[in-house]
């Protein structure tokens, strides 16, 4: 049985006004109660994918299709999309220090989001804010609401950020590197929190570069390289049996935390391509150890079983 997708992105391409393509074929979906990890290195377009779903890139031209709750977002009017933002879909950003307005209290900023979407009085909104902060495990939530961002620790700021994102009970929560700016012990706290949220039924899209984070808090994963999704599947499948040579190399490059210490870490030679020099064939072919002549044509996504897809000629018929 397969859950009805909450969000479905089909062949999303994103162009700069000068014609450079930042995303060149992103296809993925998120169902309610699922958590999709979008993994990739810097410049792979994982944050851009998230921002396009939110509609926060007005200056870029998007082609393809993004369907959210059965509505096509790319043809939707800005006014309609704005109603979705913050209420039906919400976003958590990497650095809660800069993501909050530094000059207003945390509480005021959460109140604002609540009152943008719900007809509540200031007083009622604040009561809800305090309740949300409490649910996120912020000690003394009433006091915390009156604090300014710089007066809270990184972990508490990120909790407040999540409280704000959840204030209107969104169906989809997008988290862009939510723990990268945090220390490991605090990161663990936030990951546990995110996992609880998904278990409560929200669809989560988690953008990260850390395979460990994906393993801990996601059910599914999509691997992005140079603006293209190269592999998708459940976390268990992809992490234990990566199919795409890029996913394999990426996993191998992580230094192990137990077992014997390798003499050298396996590396990927070269650098990821910049958008204007993206190969017309398989985007990974210039760095791929298994490159073949037929890599010169961009491979389609090949279905490799239930929800498992890979874009590589090695698995062609």
């Amino acid at each position: 049985m397969r859950a009805e997708p909450l969000l479905q992105i089909q062949d999303l391409r994103l162009e700069l006004p000068d014609g450079r393509r930042l995303l060149d074929g992103v296809t993925l979906d998120v169902a309610a109660g699922q958590s999709l990890g979008v993994v990739g290195e810097s410049g792979s377009g994982k944050s851009l994918t998230a921002m396009s779903v939110m509609g926060l890139l007005p200056r870029l031209k998007a082609k393809g299709s993004i369907v959210f709750q059965k509505h096509e977002l790319l043809s939707m009017r800005e006014k309609e999309r704005r109603k979705l933002r913050g209420s039906q879909m919400a976003m958590i950003f990497q650095d809660p220090m800069t993501a909050f307005l530094p000059v207003r209290s945390i509480g005021a900023q959460i109140d604002e989001q609540i009152r943008l979407h719900q007809p509540l009085s200031r007083h009622e909104a604040r009561a809800l804010t305090v309740k949300l902060l409490e649910r996120m495990g912020v000690p003394d939530p009433e006091m915390a609401a009156r604090r300014y961002p710089h007066q809270l620790s990184g972990g508490l700021r990120q909790r407040a950020m999540i409280a704000m994102a959840l204030s209107c009970s969104p169906a989809l929560l997008i988290a862009d590197e939510p723990t990268t700016a945090l220390d490991v012990t605090v990161q663990a706290q936030i990951l546990v929190l995110l996992r609880t949220l998904r278990e409560e039924g929200a669809g989560v899209m988690l953008i990260t570069h850390d395979m460990g984070v994906v393993a801990q808090s996601c059910t599914h994963v999509a691997v992005l390289y140079a603006g293209v999704v190269v592999e998708r599947g459940t976390v268990v499948d992809v992490l234990q049996q990566p199919l795409h040579p890029y996913t394999q190399a990426l996993l191998a490059a992580i230094p192990p935390l137990d077992g014997p210490k390798p003499e050298r870490l396996p590396t990927i030679p070269g650098q990821p391509p910049v958008p204007e020099a993206r190969p017309s064939g398989c985007v990974f072919s210039p760095r791929c150890p298994k490159v073949r002549p037929d890599c010169a044509v961009r491979p389609d996504m090949i279905e490799m079983g239930e929800g498992r897809r890979v874009a590589c000629v090695l698995y062609g018929a």
Partner: peptide, 14 residues
């Protein structure tokens, strides 16, 4: 260009 403005837009502010 600040992150906090992006947040404001992500909140659904006009």
């Amino acid at each position: 260009g600040e992150d906090s403005i992006r947040t404001a837009r992500a909140k659904g502010a006009g």
